[in-house]
C-alpha cells in the first residue's frame, strides 16, 4: 500500500499534468530605503506611538537612569545573560535583576512559573522596521529566549539608533532565520469584542521602547 506522502505527491503531479510554467516573479517593490536617518527614526517613533508603545530616548550615559525610572515599583526583573550590564540600574534593597541563561536545559534559566512571578524584562533588539513600527528579536544573547519577553507583563526594549531601517526587506537582511525570530509591533492587543482595541491580553501589557542614541 502506498503511503500518504506518495499518494498526495502523485495526486499533485496528476493535477499538474498541464505543466504550468509561470515566469520568475517580478519584484517591483522597494527593497532599499531612500529616507534619511532622521526621517526613518521619526517614522519609527510615530508608528510605535500609534500602536501604543511608549517611546523614550537615552544615551549610553543616561540609559541606566532611564531604565531605573521605567522599572518604577518592579521588585524583580529578568534580563538575558548577554545584556550590557552598564545599561542596568544598581540593584537596591527593594529591586533586583535576575539573569536568565536562555536555555531550559542549563542551570540559571528560570522556570515558566518563576518567570510568571517577575514584574518586568529588559532586552536589546536586533533590528527595527520604521515603516511598520516593528521590533525584531532574534534570540541573541542580549535578547534572550522567547519566553522571557512574553510572560512578564512589562517589556523594556532597547533599540539602538543604528539598527533602525525603513523597510521590511532591509530588516530581513539583518536577521538570522536559523534562530527564532519574534517580531513585535506594540503591546499585545485584541479587537475581538465589537472591534474595540484593548491593549494587553496575554502578552506584555506595557511595551517601553528606549531609542539609544
Amino acid at each position: 500500500m502506498s503511503t500518504a506522502k506518495e499518494d498526495i505527491l502523485g495526486r499533485i503531479r496528476s493535477s499538474l499534468s498541464d505543466h504550468p510554467s509561470p515566469p520568475e516573479p517580478i519584484r517591483n517593490y522597494r527593497r532599499t530605503s531612500k529616507l534619511s536617518k532622521e526621517a526613518t527614526l521619526e517614522m519609527l517613533v510615530d508608528r510605535l506611538i500609534d500602536y501604543k508603545a511608549n517611546v523614550f530616548y537615552a544615551t549610553e550615559e543616561t540609559i541606566a537612569h532611564r531604565i531605573d525610572e521605567l522599572l518604577q515599583d518592579a521588585s524583580r526583573y529578568v534580563v538575558p545573560v548577554g545584556i550590557k550590564e552598564s545599561w542596568l540600574p544598581e540593584d537596591t534593597a527593594r529591586r533586583s535583576r535576575i539573569f536568565d541563561a536562555g536555555n531550559l536545559k542549563k542551570a540559571g534559566t528560570l522556570s515558566t512559573r518563576e518567570l510568571d512571578s517577575v514584574n518586568a524584562v529588559v532586552t536589546n533588539s536586533t533590528v527595527s522596521c520604521a515603516e511598520t513600527g516593528t521590533i525584531f528579536l532574534n534570540t541573541n544573547s542580549d535578547e534572550g529566549r522567547r519566553a522571557i519577553t512574553l510572560v512578564p507583563d512589562h517589556h523594556i526594549c532597547v533599540v539602538k539608533e543604528d539598527t533602525i531601517v525603513e523597510l521590511i526587506p532591509e530588516a530581513f537582511e539583518r536577521i538570522d532565520y536559523k534562530r527564532p525570530v519574534t517580531m513585535i509591533s506594540g503591546p499585545s492587543a485584541t479587537s475581538d469584542i465589537e472591534l474595540i482595541r484593548v491593549e494587553g491580553v496575554h502578552g506584555p501589557r506595557t511595551l517601553d521602547v528606549i531609542i539609544l542614541q
Binding site: 536555555n103 531550559l104 536545559k105 529566549r145 519566553a147 525570530v181 519574534t182 517580531m183 499585545s188
Partner: peptide, 21 residues
C-alpha cells in the same frame, strides 16, 4: 487582514531550538 501596518506579534522559527520553545 486587520488593516494594520503590522500585527502585534509575528513568530518565525526553524525547527527545534535547544532549551527554548
Amino acid at each position: 487582514s486587520t488593516g494594520e501596518r503590522m500585527n502585534p506579534y509575528t513568530s518565525l522559527w526553524t525547527g527545534v531550538t535547544p532549551g527554548d520553545g
